[in-house]
């Protein structure tokens, strides 16, 4: 426990050592409370040790009424890498992804149990500010959902909410569009409606829009499922480029895609985490029978 906590602090410095000088800032005390709770639960098995960690789920479950969305998920997601979540449809991979920035809150009957730490703070703590959480954890959806506004206004949406204006905003929009590899295609038509873009461009615009709130984590929910192969290749290239600055969690049911873009892969089945580890290991020598059946195409 102690070593692990130390390791976490390397990136996030939020899990103070017991014998360190106690930090008296209120939020750190709040965090310390969380850690104490953490101490009470029996030591969990992190299936895949990963350093440094930015997201950690601990016995995390989501229920829709009585139906199980995901059950008892315990896993760590490493900072600045790509983690893919694969599994047959209905296995809870999207549910888990949407829990990370609490988009499931929009579904009235959804209920979460256990803990899900983002940067060391339990995202399901009552005191957590959803707005702040969602700014830190950006999301790209299955189907591109640009607002019916101009390209510029789409990217500027998040920063404007935070009060960024003028020159700074222009620069931010440009840099995000560049990061999303869209700048050269739209630089002369920033005022045009985003709905006039092609499907692949719209999805990259949505990525640019998510980047503009300067998130640490980018969640992608099957971002290429509605795109043609060329647009898909562009997005995959983009993901490879972004992982040096962002933590990316991507849900996909295209196994080749998971193999191509991700560093680590988690396999979900029927709401449970079956196996989680190095992508190469998952695809070449999975340790569980179910995983092997799935990645070799024998079921699902």
């Amino acid at each position: 426990m102690a070593t692990m906590a130390t390791d976490l602090t390397q990136e996030t410095s939020v899990l103070p050592e017991q014998d360190e000088k106690r930090d008296t800032r209120p939020e750190v005390i709040a965090l310390a409370d969380n850690i104490r709770i953490q101490d009470d639960v029996p030591r969990f098995d992190i299936r895949s040790q990963c350093l440094p960690t930015i997201i950690r789920a601990e016995k995390f479950s989501v229920y829709y009424g009585k139906k199980v969305g995901v059950k008892d998920i315990t896993m760590d997601i490493c900072s600045r890498s790509v983690t893919a979540i694969i599994g047959p449809s209905g296995c809870g991979k999207s549910t888990f992804l949407r829990s990370i920035n609490r988009m499931n809150d929009l579904i009235p009957i959804a209920r979460a149990e256990g803990a899900l730490y983002v940067n060391g703070v339990n995202a399901y703590d009552r005191r957590v500010d959803l707005v702040n959480l969602r700014q830190r954890v950006g999301m790209v959806f299955q189907k591109a959902n640009p607002f019916p506004k101009s390209i510029y206004d789409n990217v500027a949406y998040g920063p404007r909410l935070q009060g960024v204006r003028g020159r700074a905003l222009d620069d931010l929009v440009e840099s995000c569009l560049r990061d999303a590899a869209l700048w050269d295609e739209v630089k002369y038509s920033l005022g045009k409606s985003a709905l006039a873009l092609s499907g692949g461009q719209q999805q990259r615009l949505c990525i640019a829009r998510a980047l503009a709130t300067k998130p640490q984590v980018l969640l992608m929910d099957e971002p290429c499922s509605a795109l043609d192969p060329i647009a898909t290749a562009k997005i995959e290239e983009l993901i490879a480029g972004l992982k040096h600055a962002y933590t990316i969690v991507i849900v996909t049911h295209n196994m080749q895609q998971a193999a191509r873009v991700s560093d680590r892969t988690a396999f979900f089945c029927l709401g449970e985490l079956i196996e989680y580890g190095d992508t190469r290991a998952i695809f070449t020598k999975p340790s569980r029978k179910q995983t092997e059946d799935y990645v070799t195409g024998r079921f699902g």
């Binding site: 929009l106 969602r134 700014q135 959806f141 189907k143 949406y157």
Partner: peptide
């Protein structure tokens, strides 16, 4: 709904989402 989710995922509060995305649309 995807527009609402998009706005919330960018850190808009509910009233910001309604007045800046849903109502204009």
């Amino acid at each position: 709904t995807s527009l609402r989710e998009g706005a919330l995922a960018l850190g808009a509060t509910r009233w910001q989402m309604i007045l800046t995305v849903v109502v204009p649309a």
